[in-house]
Structures are given as C-alpha cells and as structure tokens.
Nucleic acid binder design. Sequence first.
DNA 1: GGACTGAATGCTTCCTAAAGCGTTCAACGC
DNA 2: GCGTTGAACGCTTTAGGAAGCATTCAGTCC
Lengths: 204, 204
Amino acid sequence: MPLTGEAPPLDETARAILDAASRRFLHYGYGKTTMSEIAGDCNMSTGNLYRYFPSKLDIAEAFVRRLRAEQIRLLREAVGKPGLSVQEKLRGFFKLKLSLVYERFHQRPKAYELSQEILRERPSFADEWEQAESRVLCEVLDEGQKSGELALCNPQRTARILQDIFFRFASSAVYYEGDYDVLEGELDDVMDLVWDGFQHRKHG
Amino acid sequence: MPLTGEAPPLDETARAILDAASRRFLHYGYGKTTMSEIAGDCNMSTGNLYRYFPSKLDIAEAFVRRLRAEQIRLLREAVGKPGLSVQEKLRGFFKLKLSLVYERFHQRPKAYELSQEILRERPSFADEWEQAESRVLCEVLDEGQKSGELALCNPQRTARILQDIFFRFASSAVYYEGDYDVLEGELDDVMDLVWDGFQHRKHG
DNA sequence: GGACTGAATGCTTCCTAAAGCGTTCAACGC
DNA sequence: GCGTTGAACGCTTTAGGAAGCATTCAGTCC
C-alpha cells in the first residue's frame, strides 16, 4: 500500500529505536523523553541513535507517520465497506475523521501533543496529510462518477472543497467546544446540504 | 443599533480610559501595556482605574467589543447594499469576513493578539461573537425566504450550518496557509456548492 | 574499516531570587 | 461624604546562572 509521505523501510535496529521512542512519547510526551533514555531502552549509546535517525524530531516524525498511516487505513476501510452508497461513504469518511480526531485529543493527549509539535516544526506535514486524505476522497468521488451518483467536473477540486467544508470538524478549536453529539449532528446537516448540491448538479 | 454583548454606555472618564488603553494596546500590545501607564495617560492614579473597569482584562474586553461591533457594522453594510441577490449577499458576507480576519492578522498584529488573549481568558466570547454574526445571517436568510429565493425549514439552524461550512476561512489556521486569492477562490467554490444545495431544496 | 562509544560542545530548559505589575484599601483632601 | 491617591500586598514575569540534553566526532574495539 504506497502512501506518499511514508517513511523509507526501517531496518531492525531503526524499528527497535522507533518502538522504544514511541512507547516513551505516548507515556511521557515528546518533551520529557530524552535521547539517552531511548538509547538506554535499546541498549546502545546515545550517539548511535544518530546513525538511524538524523534527529530526535525525525524519530517523532516517523512515529506520527505511523499514526497517520493507521488513520488512512481506517478511513479507507470505512469507505471500502461493500454495499454503501457514495453519500454514505462520504458521510462515513468525515464522521470517522471526527471521531478519530476527537478521541485522540481526549484519550491520547500525548499523541495529540506530538502531532502539534510536528505541525509546528514541520508545517508542510499538514499539506501532506491533507493530500493523503484527498486521495481517498477522490477515489470515492471517482466511484460516484462511474456509478452515475455524481456529476462533477473536477473530482480533485471537489475533494479540496469538501475538505474546506468539513474543516471545522477536524480543527483544534472543536476540542474545546460543544460535545460530540452536537458536532455529529451538525456534520450530518452539512453533509445533507452538500449532497443536495451534488444532486442539483447532477440533474442540471 | 442594539448589539448583544455590547458594553454598557461609558461615561466620559471610562471612555477616556478606554481610548488611552486602546492606543497602547494597538501599539505595544496587551502584555506590554501596564495599568500605571494607562493611568498616567489619563492623569489619574492607577487605583482609580478600578472604579471604572474591574480589571485590566475588562478594559481589553471593552476594546475588543469595539472592534467586533465595527466588524458587525461592516458586515451589515455589505449585506444591506441595495440590488444584491441573496446569493450575492451571502457570498459578500463570507468574503468580507475573510478579508477582515486576514487583514487583521497581517496588518494589525496587536489587535489580533488581543483578540486571542480575550478568547483564551474568556472562551464564551467566541460563542457570543458567533451569535452576533448568526443574527446578520438570519436576516439575509429570512429575506431569501420572503423573496422566494430560498426554501429553508429553519433559518437559524441554516445560519449555524453556514458558519460551520465557512469556518476554515475565518480560522487561525488560514493565516499561515495559502495566499488570499487561493482562499477566495475556494470560498467561491464552496459558496457555489452551497447555493446549488439551496436550489435543490427549493425545487424539491 | 565499519560499528559503536562517551565525552565535549553549545544550545535549550530549568530554577530561583529579584523585579515588575495588577489589585486593594486605608488614608487623605476637598 | 465622596472622589482620589499611592503604598502595601501578593501573584506573575524576568533575568541570569546552573543544569539538562540534543548533537557531534575523535577515539576505541572487533
């Protein structure tokens, strides 16, 4: 499963380093985890870590890429379920995204913090992530074109517009706001209106 | 022009304090402005300020309310122009909002920082602000209902959904991202799709 | 010669005392 | 008696030295 932004394959030692670091990042957070601790967990010197990862931040990035790859997998799974209409697929995509984002903030604060740290230090990561999601969306939209459920002039542009439209449900502001059910209800209403727009375009 | 969230009328001294504070907030920022400086600008003691405002933050809030009231006025003005269709009014509303937010971040950094500070200390301010905008939107939507351009079952809910949909164009993330023209282009595409949805609902 | 070490380096973070500043209110002046 | 002051209070921020930690690389080992 190729995924742009996926790290190159790791050898056994690099993977051991990443596993050890991941455990500490999730438990103690990025800032409280030291390179000497990670090295100790791997029974090697601190200096040796740099033969595998150029910096501490690169270890963190590799970890976040893992998390993100898992999310993409889940999103693909959700839209890949047999028997769903295109509308159901799109709705499921954005609802799952909401629940993943919401859960990470509330249940896995260290993972959330780490994501924020990566976004701060490497802003291009956000674009990359959006591109990866956009590809999943395009597949769904292309499918809708083929099945006759949609009539779009530019599926890529449409994917971008959908990401704009549902941005609120994946933004950090949402974590402090209203509760999950309210958010989900609003997301449903937004999806209804979007679908009505698609219907209008289909029937001219 | 009543506006919920508007501060009670200020007497002459309170207004002088607010004016002096405003100048300093805009020039030096909130954090660098001290109460003793403000008091000095008003030829009074520091302690006397507290007869007019309960705290430094309340002065800041009064200032931000001024800024927001001005924004609401501009938004009302934009949608109140004669001869515009409802679609043009809605489009104009969100485009103006984008330009105001964008300009404040790029041209008036201290005003932006102050807004952020108020939102941090007084989160309910965000709801209040959204309610104020929602009212303007509702007026436009009600007008659309009356003129037959729209067929909505709940204008208030629709206003809320529109705010969700256009959230990205008013969120802080937008300041670091792409340039203004790209944003405006996307906003137009979103508005087009939203309008198609409204059309679909009108014609069944 | 390649894999690895661990001390050195220098940047970042932490800690703590001092300074700054928001707020209060007893005292003052009219 | 009311409006105002400005010093006191205590919380917050700052500054500077110490400690911590990411990173480098000369030296060592196999």
